[in-house]
Nucleic acid binder design. Structure first.
Lengths: 186, 186
DNA sequence: CTGTGATGCCAACGGGCGTTGGCCATCACT
DNA sequence: AGTGATGGCCAACGCCCGTTGGCATCACAG
């Protein structure tokens, strides 16, 4: 049950392979056997280290959006900064992989959906600040736009969205986010 | 190989059960056996009538967005009309179910992703009209927002979005869609 | 009334899955 | 040098999957 340097290394190898497979195939189609093969070890080791496929998944999905604090920003720039930050997360190798895992899985797995719900509800709503009126609604609208782009660009790979470079996309999305954060709602 | 009235009836029963299961569980977790059980017939009949699980899926997913022609609308109302139309599709029992199937599956299945890509690329882009500058990009931006809401409201069930009634949501989304359709892009 | 084809069920197949238990190698520590 | 724990693999289990072939049954055309 103890952990040596050697075991920690293969644990990490397994986790990296799991993230890649989960991100690429989704929870159901990613098999323990394939993950183990990618990691170059035996499937039984995966179970030994993580207890079960679900345990492995839980370990593979651990995400912190690290949203910036809007208090320190010019009020009319918050939308732009948020849009850029979200896209940056998805563009980044490691956190992008985790987010892909989460999105792919949340769509067919209630547990992952619940995790996604709390992540966006708490982290985004908190970032907007507790003082804001209609905070949860605004956070959800922001989430709908940012998850929508993520879905279309990184999962469905809609060509026109894939073709845009990040800064152009930021410029197109920023006003939307800005409006959801600040403008009066219906 | 011929078709009688009786067989057409069970074919339809199977298809309805398949749509329900696919919509609820996604492609991988919806089993032919479960669909057959829901339809009250033998799993082998499903294969007999639709050839394979994939064939059944293809038959279950046949969607026409029926997008309105913006030519006959006041230019400053197009965003609102589109937003309402999309939400209406998702709120509708039958087409909503089909769209849920498509979204749930497209996230982990390349074939369904391709279908979704063509649907949104062609149908939305065509609705915007061929004359519009940056048509595909605008269509993709609209898709990103509308699929994002669909994801958050109908699949992930983010509470603040579920709580909003349709017309409020339309009012919140309309300016976004309007801007993606008409305003100058970055 | 008879026979022929479609309709449906049953049982089974081969294969892949997650998971388990047992066995060998290795390495740290006395 | 000996010994025990730990790392790793192998083989197998039980389960559920999609799919197939064969047999009963029913409807209806002659």
């Amino acid at each position: 049950m103890a952990f040596t340097a050697r075991s920690q290394e293969t644990r990490a190898t397994i986790l990296a392979a799991a993230r890649r497979r989960f991100a690429a195939d989704g929870y159901e189609r990613a098999t323990v056997r394939a993950i183990a093969a990618d990691a170059g070890i035996d499937p039984s080791m995966v179970i030994r280290y993580y207890g079960s496929k679900e345990g492995l998944f839980a370990a593979a999905v651990d995400v912190d959006l690290r949203l910036p604090d809007p208090a320190g920003l010019p009020a009319d720039r918050v939308g732009e900064v948020f849009a850029r930050h979200f896209l940056g997360l998805w563009e980044d190798g490691e956190s992008g992989e985790v987010l892909r895992v989460l999105l792919r899985t949340a769509v067919t797995n209630e547990g992952a959906a619940e995790r996604m719900r709390t992540i966006f509800a708490t982290q985004v709503a908190r970032a907007l600040g507790p003082s804001v009126e209609d905070g949860p609604t605004r956070a959800a609208l922001v989430a709908s736009q940012m998850l929508g782009v993520a879905l279309c660009r990184y999962v469905l790979a809609l060509p026109p969205l894939v073709a845009l470079d990040v800064e152009t996309l930021v410029a197109d999305l920023a006003p939307t986010v800005q409006r959801y954060i600040g403008a009066p709602l219906a």
